[in-house]
């Protein structure tokens, strides 16, 4: 198989926070009815984490499950394991009403690191989300809009945010994040 190539070749930027294109990251979408326990168990079996509660991330070290909607989960695995994980899950869920698809090459993933309040501020500049520390908690996944495009992000811990967007808009999102994080642009709202 050919080597996975990330859209921005691991670009990074230092400003109010450090913006890095991480990845390659294995990403698998799982869609199934809300009460499909088999499908949920197939996901937790490959990640070793629990099925996240409403709008939660159950991720550690790039492996885990993100709650995307009532009937959708995004499973994060190492990039090299995504194809085999999909095959494994598909075999387990054969005949069931569930979709397992490898979307690793259809997404880009970024990481924002730095001062906890600045990470929140950079995201708050771009997304219509209440980023106050007592409103947006660590481990909460938010699917939203980043300026003009869809994105999802969560705080891995205070001062570290991971953000996923479509690969086709990776450059746009990276430029947005860099602009929002440019030195001298701190609003210090939080």
């Amino acid at each position: 198989m050919s080597e996975p190539v990330t859209p921005l070749a691991g670009a990074s930027f230092d400003g109010l926070v450090r913006v890095t294109e991480t990845g390659p990251q294995g990403m698998i979408v799982l869609r199934c009815p809300e009460d499909a326990t088999d499908a949920r168990e197939a996901a937790t079996a490959v990640t070793g984490t629990k099925d996240p509660a409403l709008r939660r991330a159950a991720v550690s070290n790039g492996t885990g499950i993100l709650w995307m909607s009532p009937d959708e989960r995004l499973i994060l695995v190492p990039r090299a394991k995504s194809a085999s994980t999909v095959a494994e899950m598909q075999a387990k869920l054969a005949g069931q009403h569930a979709l397992v698809a490898d979307v690793s090459d259809a997404r880009a993933i970024f990481r924002l690191e730095g001062d906890p309040l600045m990470v929140r501020e950079v995201l708050a500049k771009l997304a219509p989300v209440d980023m106050r520390p007592d409103h947006f908690e660590v481990g909460e996944v938010r699917r939203t809009r980043l300026a003009q495009v869809a994105a999802a992000f969560w705080l891995e811990q205070e001062g570290t945010a991971d953000l996923i967007c479509f690969r086709s808009v990776a450059r746009y999102v990276y430029d947005l994040l860099c602009t929002a994080a440019v030195n001298g642009s701190a609003v210090k709202h939080f």
Partner: peptide, 11 residues
């Protein structure tokens, strides 16, 4: 009502 987010109009 599905995800509980207090969504702003543009979302």
């Amino acid at each position: 009502p599905h995800c509980g987010v207090q969504a702003e109009e543009t979302e």
